[in-house]
Simulated scan of single mutants.
Amino acid sequence: MTDEQLHHRGDRAVFAEDLRADGEPEAEFNPGIAGRLPRKNVAAGALVRDGEGRVLFVDPTYKPFLEIPGGMVEDDESPLAACYREVREELGLELTLGRLLLVDWMPTHGVWRDSLQLIFDGGTLSRGQIRAIDPDGDELGGFEFLNLDAARPRLRPSKARRVALAHQALLSGDAFYGEFGRPAR
């Protein structure tokens, strides 16, 4: 692949050109079926570390648990572009995201429909990058770097499993598929 193919970073113009190149969309084989098909939410986050290997967790103002940087993918936005946008909005950082570590399915829970949770390698931050973190005060109460054992009591159990699985993927060099934070084969 060329550098251009690898580094589009969710560029809407690139996708628009790709859609034009694909030609007319296929017709519905059964009129009205597209509107009746299920939709899933998608979220994208980054597994970001410090020089000691601890994971960056953010403290959202709107929920009682820690999260990793990231958030919901908007309509017509790629998960990769959403991850870049969310990290920039939440932390004021322009990171170079690495490979996909994990795709994790999450079941419907209360008012929240089932979703796919993607975690990308957010890399290791330098001391200068850490000093430059500027948390969005409306959305975040702060941030901290923690090892997984220290973070676990402050995470939902499914999030703790998901982050641990993404960390395992990082160390193994593989990408994993999980279901509610548990490895699935």
Rank of each mutant, 00 (worst) to 15 (best):
L118R: 01
G35E: 04
L91D: 09
A81K: 05
E52V: 10
R131Q: 07
K40C: 08
R154T: 09
E139V: 09
V87A: 06
R161I: 13
F180E: 15
F29I: 14
G53K: 03
M1E: 10
L146Y: 10
G45Y: 06
H167R: 13
V14D: 03
E179L: 15
G181V: 10
L102V: 07
L101V: 03
L56T: 00
L171M: 15
T96L: 12
R152V: 04
R156G: 06
T96C: 05
V103N: 04
D138Q: 09
A46L: 02
V103E: 09
G122Y: 00
Y84N: 13
D136C: 01
Q5K: 13
R185C: 15
P38M: 13
G45H: 02
L91R: 01
L146E: 07
T108S: 14
E74H: 08
L95E: 13
R49M: 08
V87Y: 03
E139K: 10
C83W: 00
L91N: 00
E139F: 12
R113L: 03
R182P: 15
G23C: 09
L19A: 07
E86A: 12
G53V: 05
E28W: 04
H109K: 10
G141V: 03
R156Q: 14
D121N: 09
R9A: 15
W105D: 13
G71A: 05
I130A: 01
A164C: 12
R88L: 10
G137Y: 05
L91T: 00
P25F: 12
H7F: 13
D59A: 11
E94F: 07
V42C: 11
F145L: 01
A13S: 07
P38A: 07
G23K: 03
L170D: 11
L140V: 02
